[in-house]
């Protein structure tokens, strides 16, 4: 399997990369970890004229805390997320999600920015980002804008990112102590995409759920946010019956594509099941039981 020919540039700075993007008139693709793009090119589903390799731009790397947010360079690899002591302490959901992504070798190349910007609803970071209410920094030669992860995903492989823009940074919140979180992913085997996955972030006041985010992976054209389920649970003491109702509400928004992993009915039910499990685990964590 051989990719078609293309030109290759490896800029050393973000501004060089943005200039190249500007000049390329939509014919370029940004090469991050390459583990989605290069296979697509080998299958000849993608045939860009130019690859802009952003792997040699130091400013796109690194994880640092800025106030109550953690700023993550788009070219930070999955294994770097996994190994980050800062994330483990301040936003442990993220390394937990990474554990479920691909395999050790792929996590050495795959980046958080690539995973997010690719726009594939099967990827694991997008739903997580929505649940965390993360922000993305998009830069172009004309300037920069900061967009909410909640607004970023428009359709399959279709995001707010313009052809001349580069995702440079991801900003996730420092999770306050007592935050409950969970990512529950059902998959056939290591390295496979989710049959369905659910991400939950919540905080409790006493027994009451103060706020909750519930998002879903690979059961629609974009990562989904189960807002009706969130509304149902907010302000309530979550019991089994409410969990069940929330799962049903989450299932109602699913519209998965059928494949060898399962048909629509199965994937929808699994989105519900993963939602149940994620809520329960998040509550246990919020209560310090796990």
């Amino acid at each position: 399997m051989i990719p078609p020919s293309f030109s290759y540039r490896a800029p050393a700075t973000v501004s060089e990369a943005l200039a190249l993007l500007n000049e390329s008139d939509g014919e370029a693709k940004v090469l991050a970890g390459g583990h989605s793009l290069l296979p697509m090119m080998k299958f000849r589903f993608a045939e860009p004229a130019l690859l802009i390799d952003i792997g040699r731009i130091p400013e796109l790397k690194g994880i640092r805390q800025v106030g109550n947010r953690i700023h993550i360079g788009a070219m930070t690899t999955e294994n770097e997320l996994l190994e980050s002591a800062l994330l483990k302490e301040k936003c442990p959901l993220l390394p937990e999600v990474v554990r479920w992504i691909a395999d050790p070798q792929v996590r050495n190349r795959g980046t958080i920015g690539g995973d997010i910007a690719h726009g594939d609803p099967a990827n694991d970071h997008p739903a997580t980002m929505r649940a965390l209410e993360a922000e993305f920094v998009l830069k172009s030669a004309d300037g920069e804008r900061v967009v909410a992860a909640d607004d970023f995903y428009l359709g399959t492989y279709y995001t707010l990112l313009e052809a001349n823009e580069l995702l440079t940074e991801i900003r996730v919140p420092v999770l306050p102590p007592g935050t409950g979180y969970a990512y529950k992913k059902l998959k056939r085997k290591t390295g496979d995409f989710a049959i369905a996955a659910a991400c939950v972030v919540l905080s409790l006041t006493g027994d009451k759920c103060e706020r909750i985010a519930i998002t879903l992976t690979n059961v629609g054209p974009t990562p989904l946010r189960a807002e009706t389920a969130e509304k149902l649970l907010t302000g309530k003491a979550i019991d089994d019956q409410l969990v069940e109702q929330a799962a049903q509400l989450a299932m109602e928004i699913c519209d998965p594509a059928e494949d060898l992993r399962g048909d629509k009915e199965y994937k929808i039910h699994m989105a519900g099941e993963m939602t149940r499990r994620a809520i329960r685990e998040a509550i246990d964590r919020a209560r310090g039981r796990k």
Partner: peptide
Amino acid sequence: YKSCNVWKMLH
């Protein structure tokens, strides 16, 4: 017996 097929029977 991928999980989908087994679940179909369970369901």
